[in-house]
Write a protein that binds this DNA or RNA. Structure first.
Lengths: 259, 259
DNA sequence: TGATTGAACTCCTCTAGACGACTAGCTAAC
DNA sequence: GTTAGCTAGTCGTCTAGAGGAGTTCAATCA
């Protein structure tokens, strides 16, 4: 049986934090293993001699930290560590990006996972002010919007939305669901825009409710966002792509060039 | 005056979520601007006709999402957008990394911010099992541990801890606070280990309580972690560095090599 | 056998109140 | 003029209860 210890009411640290600390320590030290169920609220209330809300505050803290997940009617469970997903060298990533795949997914494939795409949606819309600025279009100029969700092992891991100027997409199957071999980058090059440079802006934040739903994650699990812009040899932006992925780690590799 | 609307008690969505939705919408639409104070708990209790805990739950949700920050005794305020911090091309980053600086900080300098370092601590310790494995050392072999905290504009933005095998550091000032020009990478090369490759593993997660304290951030603000390993030309790992930074965004740039 | 019911367990949401601690601004005393 | 103390307003924490809803499983009924 798990030794929960006791809380110290004369301690400055409030009881709910002390309880969270105790549980966190058990998780950190593996005495509560991934997938294992935490003691129930009732048990903790009895054990520590506190009110229900106090125990719930403690557990909420652990949930916010992403250490545990609560399941209504079942219990609170230690979250299993997210699989480390490796993004190989940027050379590798670049090659696959040219094939129109997210580097994350390219790597998922390379590492033997079974990826997939669902919920592809392609529309033709007037560019929002933000997208227009990023693509250096006039306001409300039309863009092809391609949204899709990527799966790995059947679980959603990433959503992505690309915006391509209609002027570039015209005469190509970019506005079709199936864009043919080489993906949209292939079609962009077919249209005479040779790709020269990508920038990717990476950051992390908490998911919005919509993102939580799309990625099937709980609150408290951060997401990483990638905002990619692709430029052709003339420096003209030809695609912007917003990606939101579950904050699994990825690896970048750099070689130091010979001196 | 802000139009808060009302909640619908017959709605399936619980009141605290409805209240959070209403406030979130006001923030999203700029009717509650960054830095602006939210209506006080008492005001919201009166307005929506709910109990205190219900209002607090709603605000807790927004805090978890990083949209607002609460200040004890003052109020709850809309969080201002974090400054975008750009990490330039990997070539740029690489050059600066060779100077022993974090790429993040190198870029902060380049972008005109005034960076700084405080809380440098250098110790000589027995390697933990994990560090020993990453540096391919025998268990408990000794390593130099260099911890420091980086500031930008006087605010902490990043903490970093480097581990260098004592065998490599011996005879160099790596164990001193001041390592001389070129930083630790310079000294590592002085010791005959020419640098050839870096890997960086990037991920995002919620901060631990210690990290929250060191970076002076509240709960609910995710951090990005970088785990770097530097290898010499023989493929021997010569340094590992764990970095935790506030989840500001950074930019990667890739050039597509000529075909 | 198969479907239904019920009980026991779990977490979810909410109420109504209490006290504490921090902040800021005012006021009275020094 | 400065300082100490007061006060109103704010959020932080806790108590003790209530009913609701999802899950599981065993007992019951058709």
């Amino acid at each position: 049986m798990l030794d929960l210890g006791t809380i110290d009411r004369s301690n400055d640290r409030p009881p709910y934090r002390q309880i969270a600390d105790i549980l966190r320590a058990h998780i950190d030290h593996g005495r509560l293993a991934p997938g294992e169920q935490l003691p129930s609220e009732a048990t903790l209330i009895d054990h520590f001699g506190v009110a229900r809300m106090t125990v719930r505050e403690a557990i909420k803290e652990l949930r916010t930290e992403g250490l545990v997940v609560a399941q209504h009617g079942k219990g609170v469970f230690v979250r299993s560590a997210p699989p480390v997903r490796r993004l190989a060298s940027d050379r590798f990533a670049r090659r696959h990006r040219k094939e129109g795949k997210s580097a994350f997914i390219a790597e998922a494939e390379a590492s033997g996972h079974v990826p997939g795409v669902d919920q592809i949606r392609v529309t033709n819309e007037a560019a929002s002010p933000e997208v227009a600025e990023r693509l250096r279009l006039k306001p409300r100029e039309r863009v092809i919007v391609r949204s899709r969700r990527y799966l790995a092992d059947g679980r959603p891991v990433e959503t992505a939305t690309s915006y391509i100027p209609e002027a570039i997409a015209k005469g190509t199957p970019i506005a079709e669901v199936n864009t043919g071999p080489g993906g949209i980058y292939g079609r962009i090059e077919d249209a005479g825009h040779e790709l020269a440079r990508f920038t990717e802006e990476v950051s992390a934040r908490m998911p919005t409710p919509d993102e939580r739903k799309a990625l099937e994650i709980g609150a408290g699990i951060p997401v990483m966002t990638l905002v990619r812009t692709a430029y052709d040899t003339n420096g003209v932006p030809v695609e912007v792509c917003d990606t939101v992925k579950i904050a699994h780690s990825f690896v970048l590799e750099y070689d130091v060039p010979a001196q």
